[in-house]
Design a protein around this nucleic acid. Structure first.
Length: 643
DNA sequence: GGGAGAGACGTTTTT
DNA sequence: CGTCTCTCCC
């Protein structure tokens, strides 16, 4: 297949894919084919003989990376398999792992898992309570990622300046790095080493979803582009990641910095039906801070169907959605064509469960981690030590996990001081103590705990088959181990002769990055965030309540911050509603259903910070313009109308 | 180091 | 309303 197959020479995707300009930027709304154009551009470069190693194509999420690979491999473009298509994080990780970088930064790029933060926080307690330490770590993250040296999250600079070195020294001692540090570290390396070859490693740099990257990430991209032709793609109206300090104004800044750039806009929305384009335009025009643009509907997409319904109670809303979905599936609609978006688990979980009960094929994308239970954490940590006794973080976790919340921080401090003095690893030091070679004062509890750990490791080591080892680590009858056991056994099944090391690596990869997507024969239930980049003929947005979407305001925010937050929530809703894909030729009209309810159990409302006495539909429903249908009672559209 | 009782706080999400 | 965190006392 050739890169321009199916592209009209007169249309934008062709122009974008074929442009030879040094710096190009594509600013376009949802459903306009931005990512599609980027893929074609990559295909063109490969076909013209640019070496795949010299093309960097970055996107924000793993899902988008997989998507790009699939597309290119599907087009059977030579070199597609060798293409550096990856997330910015994976690129930064691999750069940090290079020998010359490693020796320069002194940081082992071994990311700390979320649960490993617990002992870290305990070891930092000289700086305050758990809540405070958590906040300070976040504040450091803000600092690294947004590169704003002002005072942050209520902490003064002094306080953070005192905390930061301790945090770093803990991480360095434990040979690990925080996830939030990875790109800032890589960026810092490139900044300190302007002659590093990484600056000119790529001939072409293509970046999708630029508005989702934070300042540090955008600068990292810039450093990687010294020698490259750059293609930036983004949409400030779809910026929904402020919690990770996304910097959508970077789009404008990029244009200001690259004065000779060529700018493309694509107006045509090739995805949504006409009516939904109109609603989306009306909604997003309420945002003050945005680059001006208007989506143009394509008449051949048809009007589409929009239904806005309200129920008396959350229970009824769930019931209404479930029976509508069931009706659709019974009418022969492919379950994979139905997408249910909900902002909270309180809404998604009952919908998911009721659909399961009714035997509707359904998949929930709300995070459920295999490492949720203490037992799973414990066994996985032991598994790690079995593979690598020098993993200091997991040993640290295990040493404190049986304490009653203090993680034996005091004893561990003694141990760490001893290790630093004698230049020994904690495992080594504790093992010498176990054998009676040395005594480290103040570490009685740790000594006992280490003996337990050591004995268990010996027991595991003595087991000869991988399968038996897994059965010992993750026994069948333990409910808390079910998820991780299933993952491990699935891996073993896929490769029966797999070594324990290899299996561990694969398991770690799955655990830190779940969601291996399946075929698409199921009703999908997910958050609005997750839906970005997807499309679906029937999209239901549930729980459209004031307090959920937009979420409840935090009293601590200033008016300005409040407005920003509302605007982001509006973009979130905008992203959700523009998932609807019309395909009239296949009988898919494109359906958007929005529901809300006006009462819910007291406990549920309380847990979500809502006032149960004053539930009302989202303010965004009144911002959809003149083409919006009136709110009805319940879902009034019938499955049979959808053909 | 551990337990009881009082008080704070609550989401979504990426890597 | 629950769960997690903090404080106080043994």
């Amino acid at each position: 297949m050739v890169w321009h197959d199916g592209l009209e020479v007169s249309e934008k995707p062709y122009a974008i894919a074929s442009s030879d300009a040094d710096n190009i930027i594509v600013l376009a709304g949802p459903g306009t084919g931005k990512s599609f154009s980027m893929k074609r551009r990559v295909a063109r470069l490969l076909e013209e003989g640019v070496k795949p190693e010299q093309i960097l194509a970055v996107t924000f999420t793993n899902v988008a990376v997989d998507d790009m690979h699939q597309e290119l491999v599907g087009m059977s473009v030579a070199g597609a398999d060798k293409l550096q298509a990856q997330t910015l994080h994976s690129l930064a990780l691999s750069i940090l792992s290079r020998h010359h970088v490693l020796s320069s930064t002194g940081r082992n790029p071994r990311p700390l898992l979320e649960y490993e933060k617990t002992p870290l926080v305990s070891d930092m307690k000289a700086h305050g309570g758990k809540r405070k330490i958590d906040k300070m770590i976040n504040a450091c993250g803000t600092l690294w990622q947004s590169l704003v040296p002002a005072q942050l999250d209520g902490f003064c600079k002094q306080e953070l300046d005192a905390f930061h070195p301790d945090l770093t020294s803990w991480l360095v001692f434990h040979n690990s790095i925080l996830l939030e540090e990875i790109i800032p570290e890589a960026r810092g390396y490139l900044e300190r080493n302007p002659k590093a070859f990484e600056h000119s490693e790529f001939e072409h740099v293509l970046v999708d979803e630029y508005q989702d990257f934070n300042k540090s990430e955008q600068e990292f991209i810039k450093f990687l582009s010294d020698n490259a032709k750059v293609c930036i793609i983004g949409d400030d109206d779809q910026s929904i990641y402020s919690f990770k300090h996304a910097h959508p104004t970077g789009l404008q800044e990029w244009m200001d910095d690259n004065s000779g750039h060529v700018r493309f806009g694509i107006d045509n929305c090739y995805r949504c039906p006409v009516k939904i384009v109109s609603l989306a335009n009306a909604l997003i025009s309420k945002n003050i801070t945005r680059l001006p643009k208007t989506l143009q509907p394509r008449l051949e997409k048809g009007d589409g169907i929009v239904d806005i319904g309200q129920y008396h109670s959350l229970e009824k809303e769930v019931e209404g959605i479930v029976s509508f979905v069931k009706e659709c599936v019974d009418e022969g609609i492919n379950a994979g064509d139905i997408l249910v978006l909900a902002q909270r688990k309180e809404i998604s979980t009952p919908i998911y469960e009721r659909l399961l009960e009714k035997n509707v094929p359904v998949k929930s994308y709300f995070r459920e981690t295999a490492l949720k239970t203490d037992l799973a954490k414990e066994r996985f940590s032991l598994f790690t030590l079995l593979i690598d006794r020098n993993d200091r973080v997991f040993l640290r976790w295990l040493l404190g996990s049986t304490s009653s919340g203090n993680w034996y921080a005091w004893g561990y401090k003694k141990l760490r001081a001893y290790c630093e003095r004698c230049n020994k690893s904690p495992f080594q030091a504790l093992d010498e103590q176990r054998q009676g070679i040395k005594t480290i004062s103040g570490t009685d509890k740790l000594k006992t705990r280490f003996e337990e750990i050591f004995t268990y490791l010996e027991k595991l080591d003595a087991i000869s088959s991988v399968e038996e080892q897994l059965n010992e680590l993750f026994p069948k009858n333990e409910a808390g181990l079910k998820l991780i056991r299933d993952d491990a056994l699935r891996l073993l099944e896929a490769d029966n002769s797999c070594s324990l090391q290899k299996l561990y690596k694969a398991l770690l990869a799955i655990l830190s990055r779940p969601e291996v997507d399946d075929e698409g024969q199921k009703v999908r239930i997910m958050s609005l965030h997750k839906s970005k980049g997807l499309s679906s003929p029937i999209t239901i947005i549930a729980g459209c309540l004031e307090g959920f979407l937009p979420k409840h305001p935090e009293p601590s925010l200033s008016d300005n911050e409040q407005t920003k937050l509302i605007e982001e929530q509006r973009r979130l809703f905008y992203v959700g509603m523009t998932r609807v894909k019309a395909n009239p030729d296949e009988g898919k009209k494109g359906v958007l259903i929005i529901t809300s309810s006006i009462s819910m159990p007291y406990a549920t409302a309380k847990r979500c910070g809502l006032n149960v006495r004053s539930l009302q539909a989202s303010r965004f429903l009144s911002e959809l313009g003149n083409d919006a249908p009136a709110q009805q009672v319940g879902i009034s559209v019938k499955a049979s109308d959808l053909f």
